[in-house]
């Protein structure tokens, strides 16, 4: 029996994993005592795509990302002129408009070794959906695939590129973790952020019940169907609160904006933090 397997049926994540494993830029970490000079030689270069929501609303998260990366010896760049990855347009069906923004990102990060994105959702847009946006344009598709191979969500960059489970951070409090849907199901990042949190000194990690259920944000979904979105975030808040943790952590500020918005409305004093803020000793209370 001939089994036909058209290209579009291959999950982009699977396609991506293949060329990632073969990534020649994957740095070699020194394992011996005399590796110090070597470390300087092979200092990992990463350019930050900060995301528009962090740029405009939560800049302190971007500051923490930069501080954590620098603390870990990464040479951080911030290509100028970056704005939005185009996901709001892509998710509402405006693909031509989304391509317009995607071209800017492809151009702006052409020379990057790695592109670090402190959002699972925006990272998924760049890594998985850009190649789909340009699937009928061979030249742009090539660029999109190249960028895709360089994109890492923040926690993923720490665990997979730097090979790090412990960022050497200290945090005073109990933390619970909401895995954002795109980080989980598009980027395939499940345990890395939890390992990083478990290794934070002073932090007590508490598992979130029904963690992998969406918080109800979904971009324009939250205002197209506010009643459904509200119901979903109410469940999330109830689960988050049931942990008794004093800090909620995630890797996506859009989900956290949604959950914090509901927590705030309920008068909760729970702290809400991006993972980078918890890993940033100086930034946790900013």
């Amino acid at each position: 029996m001939t089994v036909c397997y058209p290209n579009h049926a291959i999950h982009p994540l699977e396609a991506r994993i293949d060329h990632r494993n073969a990534d020649p830029r994957r740095p070699h970490r020194p394992r011996t005592g005399f590796g110090k000079a070597l470390l300087v030689e092979s200092r990992t270069q990463a350019d930050l795509f900060v995301t528009c929501i962090i740029d405009q609303i939560y800049p302190q998260v971007g500051v923490s990302v930069v501080r954590v990366l620098r603390k870990l010896g990464v040479a951080v760049g911030f290509p100028e002129g970056q704005t939005c990855c185009g996901q709001p347009l892509y998710n509402t069906g405006y693909t031509e408009q989304a391509r317009r923004l995607a071209r800017r990102v492809l151009d702006g990060f052409r020379d990057s070794t790695y592109v670090v994105v402190p959002s699972g959702s925006c990272a998924a847009m760049m890594a998985n959906f850009y190649p789909e946006l340009f699937r009928d344009d061979p030249e742009m598709l090539e660029q999109a695939r190249t960028l895709s191979s360089k994109v890492r969500e923040f926690s993923q960059f720490l665990t997979d590129v730097l090979g790090m489970d412990d960022a050497g951070a200290t945090y005073d409090g109990s933390v619970t973790y909401h895995p954002s849907c795109h980080l989980l199901r598009e980027m395939g990042v499940r345990n890395g952020p939890i390992r990083l949190l478990e290794n934070v000194r002073g932090a007590e990690y508490r598992e979130l019940p029904n963690a992998e259920v969406c918080c109800g944000f979904g971009g324009t979904f939250s205002v197209k169907y506010p009643h459904i979105s509200e119901g979903m975030v109410a469940d999330k808040v109830a689960n988050v609160t049931s942990t008794g943790a004093d800090t909620l952590v995630s890797c996506d500020m859009s989900c956290l904006m949604n959950i914090e918005g509901a927590l705030s409305r309920q008068g909760s004093d729970m702290r809400v933090r991006h993972l980078a803020q918890v890993l940033d000793d100086d930034g946790t209370h900013s």
Partner: peptide, 10 residues
């Protein structure tokens, strides 16, 4: 439009 695109269905 009645989806947050969370991907749990897939």
């Amino acid at each position: 439009q009645a989806s947050s695109l969370c991907g749990a269905c897939r």
